Amino acid sequence: MSRESRDDEREKALRDVVELRVPLRQAVDRLASFDWDSDGDLVVFASGDALNSLQAYLSGRLDVVGLQLWAETLEGRDDLGFQMGNQGLLKDFLFQFSSPEICESISEEMVRRWRDDLRDLAR
């Protein structure tokens, strides 16, 4: 497979996780077949992506374990960029949801608070 083709596949796999386009475990397993190191951002993580994950939790598509796995999979990746102007907040979002043992336990209250804060950014 050519480097360009491999990068396209990696971008698709990363986007599948970010946007929850396929079942999470399937998306995470596929993304794990690619290296962590990257020469640049393949996908930009935006507040809408964070809101989508929170809505998936609130609607029952993701449980606490799934939401944590989703955040763990994305947090710290070299190939994931962040929406301009909200980089710090979005990095903190992923950190908090990927590390409930050192931050706050994931709960419906926490999810709703983050949802409201992220919605306020969009206004």
Rank of each mutant, 00 (worst) to 15 (best):
S5P: 06
R6N: 10
R6C: 08
R6V: 13
R6M: 12
D7N: 13
E9T: 10
E9Y: 07
E9P: 10
R10N: 10
E11W: 04
K12I: 06
K12H: 07
A13R: 07
L14V: 00
R15Q: 13
R15L: 12
D16M: 03
D16T: 03
D16I: 03
V17C: 00
V17Q: 01
V18S: 00
V18M: 00
R21P: 06
R21V: 01
V22N: 04
V22P: 03
P23D: 02
R25V: 09
Q26W: 04
A27H: 01
A27D: 02
L31G: 00
A32Q: 12
A32I: 06
S33V: 14
D35E: 15
D35I: 11
D35M: 11
W36G: 11
S38K: 09
D39H: 13
G40F: 00
G40W: 00
D41R: 05
V43R: 00
V43P: 01
V44N: 02
V44M: 09
S47N: 06
S47V: 10
D49V: 01
D49R: 01
D49H: 11
A50M: 04
S53K: 05
A56F: 02
L58P: 03
L58I: 01
R61P: 05
L62A: 05
D63A: 01
V65M: 07
L67T: 07
Q68K: 11
L69R: 12
W70H: 12
A71W: 04
T73S: 08
T73Y: 04
L74P: 06
D78P: 11
D79Q: 10
D79I: 09
D79E: 13
L80P: 07
G81I: 02
F82N: 04
Q83D: 06
Q83V: 04
Q83S: 07
Q83H: 07
M84N: 14
N86P: 08
N86K: 15
N86Y: 15
G88A: 15
L89N: 10
L90W: 06
L90Y: 05
D92S: 13
D92Q: 14
L94C: 11
Q96G: 11
S98T: 11
S98M: 12
E101T: 12
E101F: 11
I102M: 10
I102Q: 08
S105R: 12
I106K: 08
E108I: 12
E108D: 14
